[in-house]
Nucleic acid binder design. Structure first.
Lengths: 226, 226
DNA sequence: TTTAATTTTTAGGTCAATCTAAATTATGAA
DNA sequence: TTCATAATTTAGATTGACCTAAAAATTAAA
């Protein structure tokens, strides 16, 4: 129990719950890169074991028990602190850290992690802007909105990217859209699905973004001056 | 292939070869904490697979092929660099690092390791004084001798401790015998198996050491002044 | 509401890494 | 050299995590 596989399943269920998609067998299979039949088998195990880590009912999906959520949050803390370490100390790019952290998160001890958190001065977000759960499993509250919620003319600061996709991340870096960058929405919400924004600093480049991407970018709204 | 288990077996065989004990089935079983029958099974696999990682003949022990040694050296590099990191960056004590590194060494990528080596300024010994193999698998040549090779009256500097034993390491720290400490041999080679040395710095404490321990401490001889 | 399509589960297998118990092979002391 | 002891290997099982193919349940469309 508490094998690497178990940790991965709990994390995947947690992520689906977070995205408020209901965690079904095949959604999980997809995330984990295994066949649905394997998922069914594992869910039965996790439901039937002591301690019970998930609530699973046939054909009805699965959810985490509080023990299960506890572990998922711990894994998330590990993952995100490790990503910070990779970027801040080892000089990785933000698009390169995911897979490495994915491996390391299963290997580090609680001891290691707390030392690391000290050395990094207890960061509250990872390199993509995702909040890092505390040791107590509490997520810092952060009130950012989707870039797609902004109207034309609004200004905001890029705070997070909700996708682990190194091509996207590389693209964002290449146009100067890194965390903390201020921007202004030129055109929002068009039927074509294309938005246009302008960087408020540096080269003031204009960037076109698809609607899916606009949905994955989280920004901090700026006070509207009038 | 190249599972955690495989990496552990190769490392264990390497260590036995290094200590010039012949690598027999049960010596390996001991080191690895498994039953001899499991070792036999694994050795057959490692011998029969492509690439062939060990030379194994029934009842006759096992040795590493150059591919096998290559991997064992890589694991050793990982282990020792990670130990340095734990001590130098995370502030672990030298007696606390072994188990943590044991886990991490299987999880870090080559990329990670080279970045780490950069950040640590390419150390050539781990916190216990053991040489760290280069990326090319070459061990830095170091000419240290056993403390037990010294005659009474000789002076030397402690350079390495050849045992992963946290009680021993804690003891050494507690009497001030850390790496780099200068010392003088007061009594050597007595039939009782007890040696007495004096620290050449600080409190100049006199320490009694058993013969097994004296064998595990490596020192750099000082030029005899006369 | 009936059926077709999709999703999920069951049944039965594989593979790596371990185990126990029994059989075999080596070794060393008399 | 012989035989008892110790070391090693074989045989056969187990466990976790996965698979494929077939069966069953759910969902959505006609």
């Amino acid at each position: 129990m508490r094998s690497q596989a178990v940790e991965d399943y709990l994390k995947a269920i947690y992520k689906l719950e977070e995205e408020q998609q209901k965690a079904g067998t095949s959604a999980l299979a997809d995330k984990l890169g295994v066949k649905p039949s394997s998922v069914t088998a594992m869910l039965k195990r996790l439901d039937g074991e002591n301690p019970k880590l998930v609530d699973y009912r046939q054909h009805r999906g699965v959810s985490l028990t509080s023990e299960g959520r506890q572990i998922a949050l711990e894994m998330t803390r590990r993952h995100r602190l490790l990503e910070r370490f990779l970027v801040d100390v080892l000089g990785y790019g933000w698009e390169e850290v995911h897979d490495e952290a994915e491996q390391l998160e299963h290997a580090v001890s609680p001891r290691f992690l707390e030392r690391l958190s000290d050395v990094l001065h207890h960061p509250i977000v990872d390199p993509h802007g995702h909040p890092i759960p505390g040791i107590d499993g509490v997520l810092p509250e952060i009130s950012w909105v989707c870039l797609s919620d902004l109207e034309a003319g609004e200004r905001a600061t890029l705070r997070a990217v909700q996708r682990e996709d190194s091509d996207l991340l590389r693209f964002l870096s290449s146009v100067g859209l890194t965390l903390g960058t201020r921007l202004e929405v030129l055109e929002a919400e068009s039927p074509s699905g294309v938005r246009r924004i302008r960087l408020a600093e540096g080269n003031r480049e204009v960037v076109a973004l698809g609607d899916r991407v606009a949905n994955d970018l989280r920004v901090e709204r700026e006070q509207q001056e009038r």
